[in-house]
């Protein structure tokens, strides 16, 4: 993965795993790379990875079994909540951007309908 330089690295790692969970790269209950593996693979400080994993444990996004590695949660409610959050975030970003161009809401809605009607691009 590529890092941007502005955000803390641990936050970017959490976002990356969230996205992989939402888009199905990681399925519920699937094992994810261990902290050590990920640190080596990305060349990221292992203490930073540790922080990301600990926060994901606190968020109930992953479960770590001692000596067995880390796994995505089996709790489908967590996945649904993440999907919901991701959608709201994407919608508010696009709508606010279009509003900032001075587009009225009806026009934005029309544009979205037209886009959807065209089918998957």
């Amino acid at each position: 993965m590529e890092f941007n330089q502005k955000e803390p690295i641990y936050a970017q790692i959490i976002d990356d795993i969230k996205i992989k969970f939402i888009n199905g790269t990681y399925r519920p209950g699937q094992e994810i790379p261990s902290r050590r593996e990920l640190a080596k693979e990305l060349g990221v400080n292992p203490n930073t990875i540790q922080r990301a994993y600990r926060e994901m444990e606190d968020m109930n996004l992953i479960v770590t079994a001692r000596g067995q590695g880390s796994f995505m949660t089996n709790d489908l409610y967590v996945l649904d909540t993440l999907r919901e959050e991701a959608m709201n975030h994407a919608v508010s970003q696009s709508v606010e951007l279009l509003r900032s161009f001075g587009k009225p809401d009806e026009e934005i809605l029309d544009a979205i309908r037209r886009y959807l009607a065209r089918g998957s691009s």
Partner: peptide, 25 residues
């Protein structure tokens, strides 16, 4: 460097002016 650090946990002091190159480690 990171792999060595993961295995051994030593303390590393690294000088550079390539800021963006080292910040993730």
């Amino acid at each position: 460097i990171v792999e060595d650090f993961v295995e051994e946990g030593q303390s590393i002091l690294i000088t550079t002016h390539e800021v963006s190159e080292v910040e993730i480690m």
